Structure formats: structure tokens, C-alpha cells
Simulated scan of single mutants.
Amino acid sequence: MSKSPNRPLLRFAPSPNGLLHLGHAFSALYTWAAAAALRGTVLLRIEDIDFERCKPEFTDAIFRDLHWLGLDWPTPVMHQSQRLDHYAAAGERLRDLDLLYPCFCSRAEIAAKSTGTDPDGAPLYPGTCRHLSAAEQIERLERGDPVQFRLRNDRARAMTGPLTFTLVGPLITDRPQIRYARPERWGDVVLQRKGTPTSYHLSVVVDDAAQNITHVTRGRDMEASTDIHVLLQFLLGLPSPIYHFHRLILDGEGNKLSKSRNSQSLAALRQAGWSPDDVRRELGFAPRQLN
């Protein structure tokens, strides 16, 4: 990891698994506005570890859409698909601390035995594979059973004790506040899968540290995930950025815009005659000032 930056560094980190929509545009414009207020810089990161859904053409579309909005960023751009060895090394550090264990449960099995849900509404893992013997683990791994590696949440929290992170309010330059993290809400989260040595939780903390990110702006739907990120940062000896959670862009039915809901893309709006300033006004940002 390189030395600490002399100025604030933020990041915008989309996944190239579809086309950007107004929700992404708001997050991008908000992040660049926050960087301007802090007299900092925004780095673009491509989070392309989902090898089935992420496509090069979507990466190209991200660049095209952001440039159309009038945004720019330093190069080269970090691609997570090129950093798998770094995530594997972080996973090994957690394994050396006896904090990872293999899990062979299917989603259906987890749902059938779970007695609660995580902050995203998914069934909490009931801990079934925690109790497998070392011999059973080795046998199933050698057999090639589908596997994912989970964090021993209670043991991790016993190592760290209570954790806090720094939060700023609606204005990124507001006085910082301290908030307690509550990683216990997530249970034994998945950090690695067979064939992919990382998850979003693991890769994001490794990359934020590698890029010396000082401030993270993210949607309110990601607020709870910060609990796990702060826990991993402590366990891996990584710094915690200052966090801010911005509002979400909703559709007419009150649902968050998303690729899975086929929310109208920026490319479709552009084809329909929208200008970058139309997008900015729609989202509450002032039109771009041209030199």
C-alpha cells in the first residue's frame, strides 16, 4: 500500500454488469461534487469480479456515460479482475487467524434452517458447516463440492472488540461524527467462493486501502454493509475512510432504481434526446459550467 495522500481521494466504483441508470448518475455526480468541495480527486474503479455477468462492452459504456456527463478521472483505472492475487492474500491472512471456514450449504438449505434475516433481507446463515470436522472439510473439498468460505463473525468480533467509524452529514465538509459498527447483524458472511477468491466485502476494503481512499460516498442502501467493512479493515490492519451515505433515486413506485428492474439507462435517455444538463437538473445538480 502506498503512503497516505496529501489531498482527499474518493472513488466511484461501478460494476460492468449492465448499463448505468439515473441512480448511478446521481452517485457519480454526488461523488465528484464532494471531491470538489474537499478539493480532492475521484478515482474510477471497475468492480468486475462477477465473471458471468460483467462484460467488456459494459465497461466501455461506463466510460462513455461518465464522459458524457462531463466527468473525468486519473488513469490507469483499477480493474478488480486484475487484482485477484491481492484478495487471495487477504483471505489467507484471515485464514491464518482461523476466521474462515468452508461452507457447502445451498441457498435452499440455508433458507430452510435460517431463523432470521440480514440487513439486506437475506436469510441469515444458521452456522451449519461451522461444526464440520477437519476430516469432513477435507473430504468435501477434495471431492470438489461447491464451496464458499465464511467469516467466523463472533470470533472476529471477539478479536476486535467494539468498533466505530467516522461519518459526515449531508455536506461532505460537515463536522465528523462517530458511529458504532454492528457487524453482528450480518452473521457469518461469505468472503470467498470457489473459483473467485473474493466477495464484494473483501475486495472493497482491500482496494480502498490500496488506492488510499480517504472518503467514501455511497447510497443509503450500502450503509449497513459498512459494519462488515470496518470489521475487515481492523482484522487486516487497513485504514478506515470517512463515510457518507447519500439518498437513493427511486422510481414512481418508490423502488430504488436498479439494473435488475431494467431501470431506464443513461444510454436510452441520451438516445431519447436528453442532454447531460437535463440529467443534472433531473437529479438536482446545477448545469455543468463550461470554460
Rank of each mutant, 00 (worst) to 15 (best):
R175A: 15
P176D: 06
Q177M: 14
Q177Y: 06
Q177W: 12
I178V: 15
I178L: 14
A181Y: 00
A181D: 03
E184L: 10
E184R: 10
E184W: 07
R185Q: 15
G187Y: 00
D188R: 01
V190L: 09
Q192N: 10
K194A: 15
K194V: 13
P197H: 04
P197E: 03
S199I: 05
S199P: 06
H201C: 02
V204S: 09
V205W: 04
V205G: 03
V206R: 04
D207C: 02
D208K: 05
A210M: 08
Q211G: 02
T214A: 08
T214I: 14
T217I: 15
T217S: 14
R220P: 12
M222Y: 14
E223F: 14
A224D: 08
S225I: 05
S225G: 03
S225F: 01
S225Y: 01
S225N: 06
T226A: 10
T226K: 00
D227K: 08
I228D: 04
H229E: 04
H229V: 05
V230I: 05
Q233R: 04
Q233Y: 08
L235S: 08
L236C: 10
G237K: 01
L238C: 06
L238D: 00
P239Q: 08
P239V: 04
P239K: 06
S240N: 12
P241A: 06
P241L: 09
P241W: 11
P241E: 05
I242Y: 01
Y243N: 06
H244G: 11
F245S: 09
H246N: 12
L248E: 07
I249K: 03
L250K: 06
L250I: 08
L250T: 02
D251N: 09
G252M: 12
E253A: 12
G254K: 03
N255R: 13
K256C: 08
K256P: 11
K256T: 10
K259S: 04
K259G: 07
S260W: 08
N262H: 14
S263I: 12
S263R: 09
Q264P: 15
L266F: 07
L266C: 08
A268N: 07
L269T: 05
L269A: 01
R270H: 14
Q271P: 10
Q271E: 15
W274D: 04
W274M: 03
S275Q: 10
S275Y: 11
P276L: 00
D278N: 11
R280A: 09
R280K: 06
R281N: 04
R281I: 13
E282P: 13
L283S: 01
L283F: 07
